[in-house]
Design a protein around this nucleic acid. Structure first.
Length: 290
DNA sequence: TGCCAGGCTTCAC
DNA sequence: GTGAAGCATGGC
């Protein structure tokens, strides 16, 4: 029996400074999961992509060259030379140097602004595993079915689907008090009152202003949407982990102006380092005190 | 079982 | 303008 086209397509690449495991755990995307040893499955842009990491560092992407070049190369930000960013971190900042080294391979993905808006409204006061759960419920309930290698996945729901779901429908996805926020955003986009493509043409300041005008979107969520949905790499989201790191290592004041133009990338290094490495140590300490 | 989580809106003052 | 209270619910 002949396989489907998707089964027969594969491309092998070896991007520099690219680590899919770290990206999956970096807190910027919630639908990239390690589904088997050295194998990750991504649902994004209405597609399913499987990525396998080989022992020699090569990556197999389950798509053809044309799709890789047209879609995924940009999605994973593979045209950007991250070496430039690492080079700009002064050795005098030992903490940031360590965090950047630890986070080496993370890239800021080019994700869908609509998905980022909804996902990061959900994210407030939720842990990353809990965000994944809510997002997945939302997709299963209101997304489109995608059949891939005999498995069923679900695309991210459209603004129309969520707007028609209403607050009660959205509430069934474990989003709690955020349901009205999600409903309002969905209505705004579906009605055309908020044109996510058009605002992509605005400058950073104006873009942030528009995002902040949405019910349920504050400074943190606006910065996340800017960084992860509009690739405004100077956006600098500060959550409880960032506050913790800044408090511990910068006496409460991070010199973001030193990293003008790419502060968001530096932020991602600190966040990832804080939440995984330093965060684990913190948990270990707690366990030791019990 | 209780605490915490990629925060925001509302309401006193 | 500023600070505190209240908010739903899953994961550990």
């Amino acid at each position: 029996m002949l396989g489907t086209p998707e089964e027969s397509l594969m491309i092998t690449v070896h991007p520099l400074l690219f680590d899919i495991a770290k990206i999956a755990e970096s807190g910027q995307c919630f639908r990239l999961n390690e589904t088997a040893e050295n194998t990750w499955t991504l649902v994004a842009l209405g597609k399913v992509l499987r990525i396998v990491k080989r022992e020699n560092g090569d990556y197999d992407f389950s798509c053809g060259r044309s799709e890789f070049d047209a879609v995924w190369k940009h999605y994973f930000d593979l045209d950007t030379d991250y070496e430039n960013y690492y080079a700009k971190i002064p050795a005098s900042d030992r903490f940031l140097t360590k965090a950047a080294r630890y986070s080496s391979g993370i890239r800021i993905l080019n994700q869908d602004p609509w998905e980022m808006l909804i996902t990061f409204i959900i994210s407030q006061r939720k842990s990353i595993p809990a965000i994944r759960t809510s997002v997945e419920k939302l997709c299963e309930r209101y997304g489109n079915r995608i059949r891939y290698r005999k498995e069923i996945f679900y695309s991210f729901p459209s603004p129309e689907k969520l707007a028609r779901a209403g607050t009660d429908g959205i509430l069934a996805c474990s989003v709690g008090y955020r349901a009205p926020y999600l409903y309002h955003a969905s209505r705004a986009v579906f009605s055309g009152e908020l044109d996510l493509k058009r605002i992509g043409g605005l400058g950073d300041g104006e873009l942030k202003e528009v995002l902040l005008s949405l019910y349920g979107v504050g400074i943190k969520v606006a910065n996340c949407v800017m960084l992860f949905g509009y690739h405004r790499i100077n956006a600098f989201p500060v959550d409880v982990w960032m506050e913790r790191m800044i408090s511990e290592h910068y006496r409460g004041l991070f010199p973001a102006e030193k990293y003008e133009g790419f502060a968001g990338i530096v932020q991602q290094f600190i966040f990832f380092y804080g939440r995984t490495y330093a965060g684990t140590r913190k948990l270990d300490k707690r366990a030791a005190l019990r």
